[in-house]
Nucleic acid binder design. Sequence first.
DNA 1: CGCGTTGTTGATAGACTTCAACTTTTGTGG
DNA 2: CCACAAAAGTTGAAGTCTATCAACAACGCG
Lengths: 248, 248
Amino acid sequence: MIVFKQHGVTAEELPGNWSDRCRKIPAGMRPLAAIRRCRRGRQIYGRGDPAEHWYRIVSGAARKCALKADGRRQIVDFLLPNDFFGFTAAPRHAFAVEAVADGTLVACYPRNRLESIAKVDPELNQFIREAAFEAISRLQSRLLLLGPMTAVTRVGLFLLEMAERSPAVRTSVVELPMSRYDIADCLALSVETVSRALTGLQRRGAIDFDGKRTVRIVDIGALSSDGDGSIATREFIPGLSEVAQSLL
Amino acid sequence: MIVFKQHGVTAEELPGNWSDRCRKIPAGMRPLAAIRRCRRGRQIYGRGDPAEHWYRIVSGAARKCALKADGRRQIVDFLLPNDFFGFTAAPRHAFAVEAVADGTLVACYPRNRLESIAKVDPELNQFIREAAFEAISRLQSRLLLLGPMTAVTRVGLFLLEMAERSPAVRTSVVELPMSRYDIADCLALSVETVSRALTGLQRRGAIDFDGKRTVRIVDIGALSSDGDGSIATREFIPGLSEVAQSLL
DNA sequence: CGCGTTGTTGATAGACTTCAACTTTTGTGG
DNA sequence: CCACAAAAGTTGAAGTCTATCAACAACGCG
């Protein structure tokens, strides 16, 4: 059994909020779902495409991203199972969404039909509203990740966020569906810096690898604290659960 | 008359999207509004406060921010007239919101009563949904501002965003309600860097000042292009209007 | 007028990016 | 099943940008 050095919390107790996101999908919208299977890199919708559907990740993972003139990507959000996306008040999507994992399953819901049903179905209405509110929370957490902090701290907090959003039972083991390049584009760092940060965290004993994309969180204190030992994030990441907050 | 050097577009034609945000507020929610007047720096709600209201800025400006352990702030969003805020699926607010301008007027709507009315009022429902979607758009734009780019570009894009969100008729003149410190905390830069960037843009002839907090946008090309003249943001900021996109 | 706040400018140190070389992993076709 | 090429990941050295520290100027308010 893995025990976190600083706090004596077993790995299994590392809190996740995944179950929170598994609220029952309203009966009214279930029959409207069209399931699509996407290979790695496959575009789910592009920038400028008419916004005719809302989407939900069933399994796998996707990235919401913008393309800059110099060819570099900026990843705005990672979508994991049960995340809804594609919300916009505008008639067209402002960002592209692409599958990250091979064989990602996406449920597509026709927007106009969903909106018609919502007119007479309070349950569906509340569901959509809360899905949108969760997207807001996710984006706000991501904004904090881009604040002024060192690369190591940023990568560490990213791993924590992924751990909490992960559906895995043992949340101390994080499966990263995305490449180092994706992480870099998401954290506004270069690939090399991400790689060095991960290596640094490993050397420090904060994490360990069971493969390039499988991370074991060993010492959650070392993960979130800065290099000099000072804790940089107390009361800082609202997206993290209460328990994780207290650990920071 | 001010003419933009690169494109020959008069100042008055610089497009704003403020009128888009002035959609009529549904009749059902108007009588519920309680108006609050806030002095500069006054907290509208704090982190951890029960989320019992939704809010709308009537006049003035506010900042949504998180406090880090080292005492530094991270500003997640600036709220301008007609922006709605306070949305959350959680029972408590994750961020604090404080007035930036003196005498800021805020409309407060009781959340539970609004939700009750929404159950039977499709119009109100759609209104709330779209207000939330707009918050999502705003946050996504802000995420792009924190991507990897130089401080000058970041400040320039910030000015453009403020210009487009401004209710002023002549959108080439931007009134900044916030201090340099606020801008720094919003863009993840130091105050000194923000100051230097503004001075640099002025020297380059991209902007001019009618006072510390009144900026005239003179050359929109120089504002959004990088130091070496290369344009860094084409097709990049979905939050900007189509016309501004074409100018970038 | 004095004092605190806000804003500007300069010099230095530190962090990240970039460029380059290299290793490991993955996938594909013979 | 192996060979080979492409993609993904790692590591090192040098350059650039920004933060920090420090000093000072401008502004606002009692």
